[in-house]
Amino acid sequence: MDVFMKGLSKAKEGVVAAAEKTKQGVAEAAGKTKEGVLYVGSKTKEGVVHGVATVAEKTKEQVTNVGGAVVTGVTAVAQKTVEGAGSIAAATGFVKKDQLGKNEEGAPQEGILEDMPVDPDNEAYEMPSEEGYQDYEPEA
Rank of each mutant, 00 (worst) to 15 (best):
M1E: 00
M1C: 00
M1A: 00
M1F: 00
M1H: 00
M1Q: 00
D2G: 00
D2S: 03
V3I: 09
V3A: 11
M5A: 07
M5D: 00
M5N: 07
K6R: 12
K6Y: 05
G7W: 14
G7D: 00
G7A: 12
L8R: 00
S9Y: 04
S9E: 09
K10E: 02
K10D: 04
K10G: 01
K10Q: 10
K10S: 09
A11F: 14
A11V: 13
A11D: 00
K12Q: 08
K12D: 00
K12Y: 11
E13Y: 02
E13M: 10
E13L: 01
V16N: 12
V16F: 12
A18K: 00
A19C: 12
A19M: 06
K21R: 11
K21P: 00
K21D: 00
K21Y: 12
K21T: 13
K21S: 07
T22G: 12
T22D: 00
K23R: 12
Q24P: 00
Q24K: 05
Q24L: 04
G25A: 06
V26F: 06
V26I: 11
V26L: 11
V26D: 00
A27R: 05
A27M: 03
A27Q: 08
E28N: 04
E28A: 04
E28L: 10
A29E: 00
A29C: 15
A30P: 00
A30M: 11
A30L: 15
A30D: 00
A30R: 08
A30N: 00
G31Y: 05
K32W: 07
K32D: 00
T33I: 15
T33N: 00
T33F: 14
K34P: 00
K34Y: 12
G36P: 01
G36R: 09
G36L: 04
V37R: 00
V37D: 00
V37C: 04
V37M: 07
L38G: 01
L38P: 00
L38K: 08
V40S: 00
G41R: 09
G41A: 12
S42V: 11
S42M: 10
K43P: 00
T44D: 00
T44F: 12
T44H: 03
T44W: 15
E46D: 06
E46A: 02
G47Y: 06
V48H: 01
V48G: 02
V48Q: 00
V48I: 10
V48E: 00
V48Y: 09
V49Q: 11
H50F: 06
H50Q: 15
G51I: 02
G51P: 02
V52W: 01
V52S: 04
V52L: 14
A53G: 06
V55H: 01
A56N: 03
E57R: 05
E57N: 08
E57Y: 06
K58T: 10
K58H: 14
T59G: 11
T59A: 15
K60N: 06
E61Q: 09
Q62A: 12
Q62H: 05
Q62C: 08
Q62V: 09
T64Y: 12
T64P: 03
N65P: 03
N65V: 06
V66M: 11
V66I: 08
G67R: 13
G67Q: 13
G68I: 15
G68L: 04
G68Q: 05
A69C: 14
A69V: 08
A69P: 05
V70T: 03
V71G: 03
T72R: 08
T72H: 05
T72Y: 06
G73Y: 05
T75I: 02
T75L: 11
A76E: 12
A76C: 11
A76W: 05
A76L: 11
A76Y: 15
V77L: 11
V77M: 11
V77R: 02
A78G: 08
A78D: 04
A78C: 14
Q79M: 09
K80E: 06
K80G: 12
T81A: 15
T81S: 07
T81G: 07
V82T: 14
V82K: 12
E83D: 09
G84A: 15
A85H: 11
A85L: 13
A85C: 10
S87H: 13
S87P: 14
I88C: 13
I88S: 11
A89Q: 10
A89T: 06
A90N: 15
A90W: 10
T92E: 06
T92F: 15
T92N: 11
T92D: 07
G93R: 05
G93N: 06
G93E: 05
F94V: 07
F94L: 14
F94A: 06
V95Q: 01
V95K: 13
V95Y: 13
V95G: 15
K96Y: 14
K97E: 08
K97M: 09
K97S: 03
K97R: 07
D98Q: 11
D98H: 06
Q99I: 02
Q99D: 15
L100W: 02
L100Q: 03
L100R: 10
L100S: 04
L100V: 08
L100D: 01
G101P: 13
K102W: 09
K102F: 00
K102S: 10
K102R: 05
N103C: 10
N103R: 06
N103M: 13
E104N: 01
E104M: 15
E105V: 05
E105Q: 14
G106S: 07
G106H: 04
A107G: 13
Q109N: 01
E110Y: 07
E110P: 10
E110L: 14
I112Q: 05
L113M: 07
E114W: 14
E114T: 15
E114D: 15
D115W: 11
D115T: 12
D115I: 05
M116E: 01
M116K: 02
P117L: 10
P117E: 02
P117R: 04
V118A: 13
V118D: 13
V118I: 07
V118T: 03
D119E: 07
D119G: 14
P120F: 07
P120E: 08
P120D: 06
P120Y: 10
D121Y: 14
D121Q: 00
Y125G: 05
E126D: 07
E126K: 13
M127R: 06
P128A: 09
P128I: 09
E130P: 13
E131D: 14
G132P: 02
G132M: 10
G132E: 15
Y133L: 10
Q134M: 02
Q134T: 06
Q134R: 09
Q134A: 12
D135H: 06
Y136R: 06
Y136P: 03
Y136W: 12
E137T: 09
P138M: 11
P138E: 08
P138H: 05
E139C: 01
E139K: 10
E139W: 05
E139I: 08
A140D: 11
